[in-house]
Design a protein around this nucleic acid. Structure first.
Lengths: 212, 212
DNA sequence: TGTACATCAGTGAACGCGCGTTCACTGATGTAC
DNA sequence: TGTACATCAGTGAACGCGCGTTCACTGATGTAC
């Protein structure tokens, strides 16, 4: 049994060893992402991931004992990344709320999209429909997304009550995620500039409109 | 070779026979949809579809020679249905444009969602990322969706030029599709009423705002 | 400094299984003459 | 009305393959004493 879930080390390994293990896991998830993006979940196999990562099947399973473990770790990493990206957009120290909203919009709309993130999320939505764990993680992510957008909207327009702001935040999140459907065509997955202008105008309306 | 792509009949079969074939194909696609919705594309197999439809594997392949043929027909049927639903919402004879927009919104938002249609579309987006044929069909559908929504917006607000209306139509389509991400929780996949009200208000703004 | 030992990392073969597809076949139905 | 024949519909067995998982094993690295 090469892999074990809960190692109970009697003495600690050196940092170099731990660093190596971390790098290997990163490389495995990178490889898994590449396969998922290129071939889709239906074609995702441990053998393909191992080949892509340049290691043997058995070695891969030393780090992730089952296929479910790999997929779970992969999706978790993407959700963490996306959450970090949202937080980073919210931060933008020293700027006015309106400027922060503009900056966040720029980030979302102009983004050349870190390779495949859109595709990973499409797979994520599909997987969430059949896997309760994935569904829970996904729902949590989008709840946070709506809350973050709502907080920003409220900073721009303090008249809004918190509940209304959160709902409009959900509208914004829905809009941005739905826009990925119009991103497919054209090479760098960028939206037509005229459409981007229309999105900006719509967000401005949503930010400045008084609460119900 | 039980299945052939291009039959070249020397004489025509009776209508009863053709009707039976049509029913069988419908039953097969119904079964395939059920499996897709319940288990996801990764678990979709011809054997499962056949069992679900109550026929043998070989018989299924008499109607659809390959797995790709089943999937293609399945997705095509869903896209046709969705397009018909959009057209039907546009039609609503005799009503004012504003009433038609309201009615269309009601249809989209209050819909208890024909079983699994949301899930089918999530799978569709994921598949489109890897299959050029599916991508083409999907892109065509969403272009039509944006155009239809744009036409309705322009009927409500004739000041809008056609291009702007179409872009706002794309925004509406994105918003509605993205909202499916907030539909997952809660049993009948219905959106919270307060959120629905917010959507209505946003659509009203988008319809009445002057063009750029 | 040496030895014993535990953990870390990696290898390679094998397992049973479900898969898409191929194939030869049978019977039912409908048409031509 | 009968016969010959083509197509329609369905059956059942088999194929080779890639899959996730299990397993016994080896060597490298690091720690304890």
């Amino acid at each position: 049994m090469p892999a074990r879930r809960e190692p109970a080390p009697r003495h600690r390994a050196g940092t170099a060893v731990l660093a190596k293990g971390r790098e290997r896991r990163t490389a495995i998830l990178d490889a898994a992402t590449a396969v998922l993006v290129e071939d889709g979940y239906g074609q995702l196999s441990l053998r393909k991931i191992a080949a892509r990562a340049g290691i043997r099947l058995g070695n891969l399973q030393y780090y992730y004992a089952t296929k479910a473990d790999v997929v779970r770790a992969l999706l978790e990493r993407w959700l963490v990344r996306a959450r970090d990206a949202i937080d980073a957009r919210m931060a933008a120290h020293g700027a006015s709320p309106a400027a922060r909203l503009d900056a966040a919009l720029d980030g979302i709309l102009a983004d050349a999209e870190p390779a495949g993130s859109t595709r990973v999320f499409w797979e994520l939505w599909a997987l969430a429909a059949h896997d309760p764990d994935v569904a829970t993680a996904t729902d949590g992510f989008y709840a946070d997304y709506a809350a973050a957008a709502g907080t920003l909207l409220r900073a721009v327009n303090p008249v809004l009550d918190a509940a209304t702001a959160r709902r409009r935040g959900a509208l914004l999140a829905s809009l941005f995620e739905g826009l990925s459907l119009y991103r497919r065509r054209s090479a760098p997955h960028r939206l037509p500039p005229a459409l981007v202008d229309e999105v900006r105008a719509a967000v401005r309306m949503l930010a400045t409109a008084p609460g119900a």
